[in-house]
């Protein structure tokens, strides 16, 4: 019996494509975010609120992933920015090659900001790098404040936690302080924003966060070029 040492990542091929995408985003000056949450936490609604706040001509686009239907792309297309649906046909997450294929005929040079809305799922998307600058995880109040402890992988990997549906706090036992503590136990120093896409509370802070991160990414890209 011979033991052959291999030592390679199982998702080597995905990581290779993701690295190529990341290089393309960097060269084109595109700041790319990968939005991850369970189904119904409000990814599409957060994007609607975000897109409606942008002036016409803003260089922003969205790729939105779902197992079935083009509903999300339809909801997002009415703001006049490029939107493309990725229908996975059963796969519970997006993979780098799906993003690569969806972007094939887009000129990245025309964009500055790209949102990738992942398939609703707190588990599987955490394993797949899509070439994004950073991952954002959404958690909504009705889901419960224990989710960071139950799904540590995504809370560990995401740079920002957006707590959504804050308007529902009075109707649930969700404890904001406990949710923050759970998230930071998994991810010390995690950035956390609190919003309600229904009332609009906190959305200005989210827009400000986006603006600052875009500018930081732009400065960084200018330095490495």
């Amino acid at each position: 019996m011979t033991r052959i040492v291999v030592e390679q990542k199982v998702l080597k091929e995905n990581d290779r494509i993701a690295a190529a995408l990341r290089a393309r985003f960097r060269d084109a000056g595109v700041f790319c975010l990968n939005l991850i949450s369970s189904p119904g936490a409000g990814k599409t609604t957060l994007l609607e609120r975000t897109l409606e706040g942008f002036p016409a001509g803003e260089r922003v686009a969205v790729l939105t992933g779902d197992i079935q239907t083009e509903n999300d792309a339809r909801r997002l297309a009415c703001f006049g920015f490029p939107v493309r649906q990725i229908t996975t046909g059963g796969t519970c997450h997006l993979e780098a090659r799906m993003v690569e294929r969806a972007l094939a005929d887009w000129r990245l040079e025309d964009l500055e900001l790209l949102f990738i809305e992942n398939v609703g799922n707190l588990v599987c998307p955490s394993s797949y790098d899509l070439g994004e600058a950073l991952k954002v995880v959404l958690l909504s109040v009705p889901e419960g404040d224990d989710k960071p402890l139950k799904y540590p992988a995504i809370f560990h990997k995401a740079e920002l936690l957006v707590l959504n549906k804050l308007d529902l706090l009075p109707y649930t036992p969700f404890d904001l302080e406990r949710a923050r503590a759970h998230a930071r136990r998994i991810h010390p120093g995690m950035e956390i924003l609190e919003v309600s896409c229904t009332t609009g509370a906190g959305l200005n802070t989210w827009r400000q966060w986006l603006k600052e991160r875009r500018e930081a990414a732009r400065r960084e890209a200018a330095l490495t070029r």
Partner: peptide
Amino acid sequence: TPTRCVGGDELELTFLEVEE
């Protein structure tokens, strides 16, 4: 405290055992 997370997200193929 705090301490920094430095590992635990591995998903790697490490070895193959082969009968030649």
